[in-house]
Each structure stands twice: as structure tokens, then as C-alpha cells.
Simulated scan of single mutants.
Amino acid sequence: MKIDLNADMGEGFGRWHIADDDALMDIVSSANIACGFHAGDHVIMDRIVRTAKAKGLGIGAHPGLPDLAGFGRRVMPVSDTELEAMVAYQIGALQGVAARHNHRVTHVSYHAALGTIANEDPERALRLARVIYSLDPDLTLFVMPGQASVKAAEKVGLRTQALFLADRAYTAKGTLVPRGQVGAVIHDTAILSTRVRRFLEEKTVLTIDNTLLSMEASSILVHSDTPGAVDLARTIRDQIIALGGEITPAYRLIS
């Protein structure tokens, strides 16, 4: 069993840092790198790419809305043209940084409210899929099963990689429990270990209302800003290894 373990990274700005990216890069196999809108900047991006290359990690763009104060988690009114341009701008910036270090961006993972905007409107999901495909048809879009982005990617010929968000609670409909609601974010390692084991063995997850939800995914995500993210990532890694799994960068799982 080969599976990707990825984390959102570079989500600081200037002298401010959100997470221990260096420690996470010793654990995970892929890094979703903030591209300067919801977080991140040119220096942070450069450092993350350089370190990821040295450690053999796959890298992907983690574009968000231009909302540093809200960490990209507030939905903003933007036109279709602006939405397309901001996604192209962010992915292109990371591609440039990666090229400087002889590394390559292999996937895209929408951040927070940007993903919400895309997945609430199939037409906008399609627009963004076309933008990504135009930048590099070999890019893979990270998705949650059942999202509008899945169908959009299929329409334009863009590959997808299904995610299991280990540190976020799910509803019975397969959506994420809204942040701010009790139990929405999971930071207890014992609970997380049980969730990951069930996912790996059964491809299911126990939802917040105690129903079993099918979870067909080949990549596990942990958010770097979740309290105790390094311990959570280590717990996931240990569980994968204990079950005989092999942690593998996402791009190597795509045929």
C-alpha cells in the first residue's frame, strides 16, 4: 500500500511563522506551498521549495484568496476574471521559484475559501480547472471526493488526487464540519490514530454524527496550523508504517 502524506506549508508572512515547516518536511511526502495571497511570500516560498527538493518531497501550489488578515478563510466577492487571474498568478509564481531550484510543481490544492468558491459553483470550478490545465496539463488537482472540482477536472482532462483530511471532521454528506463548530478540528493524537487506521483498513471515516462514510482516497492531508500539527503528522506516518504502508509523494502515485 502506497499513500501520500501531505501538509500545507509556508503559511507565514515575513517574520511571522505559523507552523514548524522544517519538522513537517521530515515527516510528510508532499508539500502544498502557500503562494503569497492568504499567506506566504517570495522568501518563504523559496526556502520551502529548496528544502523540499533536498528532502525529496513533491511540491504543489496552495493558492488562496488575497486575505492575509482572514488567512484566506473568508469568502470574498470576486469576478470570474479576477478569480482566474489570481489562481494563474499564484501557481505561476511557485512554478518560477521551483524552476530556479530545478524542481517542479506537480499538483494544486485550493486553500479554504477559494476551494469553497470553486466547489459551490460548477461553472467556476470548470473555469479554474481550465486555468490549471493551461499552465501545465500534467498538473494534478487535489480534491475531496464528490466535489464539483472533480467533474470539472474530468471535463478538461486534468488529473485528480482524492484527499482524506485527517484532522477535520466530516458530515454525513461528505462535507467538512464548519470551523468554529465543536469537534470540527481534530488535534487529539489518539482520536486521529483511530481515524487513520479505519481509513487505511476500511476506506471509511466516522462522521461527526457517528455514521460511516466511504472515503476512497490515496492522499492524507494534515493542516500545518492545526494545534500540534507535527505530532499529528507523526502519528499518521507511524500508523501508515505500522500497517505496512509506504509513504510516497503524490506525483508518484499518478499513473
Rank of each mutant, 00 (worst) to 15 (best):
S30T: 13
S30K: 05
S30F: 03
A31R: 07
A31I: 04
N32A: 00
I33K: 08
I33A: 10
I33N: 07
I33W: 07
I33Q: 07
I33S: 09
A34G: 07
A34P: 02
A34W: 06
A34Y: 05
G36P: 11
G36D: 10
G36Y: 09
F37Y: 15
F37H: 13
F37D: 05
H38A: 07
H38D: 09
A39N: 01
A39I: 02
A39E: 00
A39S: 07
A39D: 01
G40P: 04
G40C: 03
G40S: 05
G40F: 04
D41Y: 03
D41R: 01
D41K: 01
D41T: 03
H42I: 15
H42P: 06
V43G: 04
V43M: 11
V43Q: 13
V43L: 13
V43A: 14
I44A: 08
I44C: 12
I44V: 13
M45Y: 07
M45T: 08
M45D: 05
D46P: 02
D46V: 05
D46T: 15
D46A: 15
D46F: 03
D46G: 03
R47T: 12
R47W: 03
R47Y: 08
R47D: 13
R47S: 14
I48F: 10
I48W: 09
I48N: 08
I48L: 11
V49Q: 05
V49N: 02
V49C: 08
V49T: 09
V49H: 06
V49A: 07
R50M: 14
R50I: 10
T51V: 13
T51A: 15
T51Q: 15
T51P: 02
T51S: 14
T51W: 05
A52E: 11
A52T: 12
A52K: 13
K53S: 11
K53A: 15
K53W: 05
K53P: 02
K53V: 10
A54M: 14
A54R: 14
A54P: 08
K55L: 10
K55N: 12
K55R: 15
G56I: 12
G56P: 01
G56E: 03
G56M: 09
G56C: 09
G56L: 10
L57T: 11
L57A: 12
L57K: 11
L57P: 09
L57V: 12
G58S: 14
G58W: 00
G58I: 05
G58L: 05
G58R: 01
I59Q: 06
I59P: 06
G60K: 02
G60C: 03
G60V: 00
G60H: 00
G60N: 04
G60L: 01
G60E: 00
A61L: 08
A61M: 06
H62T: 11
H62M: 11
H62C: 10
P63G: 06
P63S: 07
P63N: 01
P63T: 12
P63K: 08
G64W: 03
G64K: 00
G64E: 02
L65R: 00
L65E: 00
L65H: 00
L65Q: 03
L65A: 02
L65K: 02
